[in-house]
């Protein structure tokens, strides 16, 4: 097993040891195959990344309120779970756009340029189809999570005393993410098809 030549997991320098500080533009590159959609995903990613920091802040606030004032919030745990969930879902799309998902590449390494190109195109198409099915299934789920049987709009809530509409929102967000994911794989397939077959050696890490 080896790292894929197109595995961009580490297209960036090794975590620095010396000097300790470096500007953080190392996560900003998006492979060309992801196109403009990939850039857009990259552009909005800080919003979701900061969600994790916000979740951290909320948990600290909750500890503080509970331990110092003996008045725990009713919303902290639900909200941090929601923020993390949104981050996890978006993180999957983000890794797809950046082609950072982990792969096993035995076949890839022994394949010639033509087969590699075929694999790239094939994998993108298969992932696109799968994402399409999931998006459709998510739509069925969203219908039940956003509407009452009578047809009124009602976002599914957590059912707690705080009762935030997080489940409804998260399901809608999952649907949207799966749609974008499908489109992202579509463009990757197109762009792999357009590109010239990769000649192995210079791409190997």
């Amino acid at each position: 097993m080896a790292t894929s030549p197109i595995d961009n997991t580490h297209d960036t320098p090794t975590p620095s040891i010396d000097p300790p500080l470096e500007p953080d533009d190392r996560t900003e590159t998006i492979p060309a195959v992801s196109g403009r959609l990939g850039s857009a995903v990259n552009k909005i990613s800080p919003v979701f990344a900061f969600g994790f920091l916000l979740a951290m802040g909320i948990l600290i606030f909750e500890i503080f309120m509970r331990h110092v004032f003996n008045s725990p919030t009713l919303w902290a745990h639900e909200t941090t779970t929601f923020l993390s969930a949104v981050g996890f879902v978006f993180g999957g799309l983000y890794c797809a756009s950046k082609d950072k998902h982990i792969r096993v590449v035995i076949l890839y390494d022994i394949a010639g340029p033509k087969l590699r190109k075929a694999l790239d195109v094939g994998i993108s198409i298969v992932c696109m189809i799968a994402s399409g099915f999931f998006a459709w299934a998510a739509w069925l789920m969203v219908k039940r999570a956003t509407m009452t049987p009578a047809g009124d709009i009602h976002f599914e809530t957590t059912g707690s005393a705080f009762n935030a509409p997080y489940p409804g929102i998260l399901k809608v967000f999952l649907l949207l993410t799966l749609i974008v994911l499908m489109v992202q794989f579509f463009w990757q397939a197109i762009n792999y098809m357009r590109s010239a077959p990769i000649t192995g050696s210079e791409q190997n890490e």
Partner: peptide, 23 residues
């Protein structure tokens, strides 16, 4: 050593690593 840029970089790496792990 603290800076907002550093925090942002760390948060984005978290997004990416969690994206991989959780999926």
């Amino acid at each position: 050593e603290f800076s907002i840029a550093m925090l942002k970089g760390a948060a984005i790496q978290t997004l990416s690593t969690c994206g991989m792990i959780v999926w």
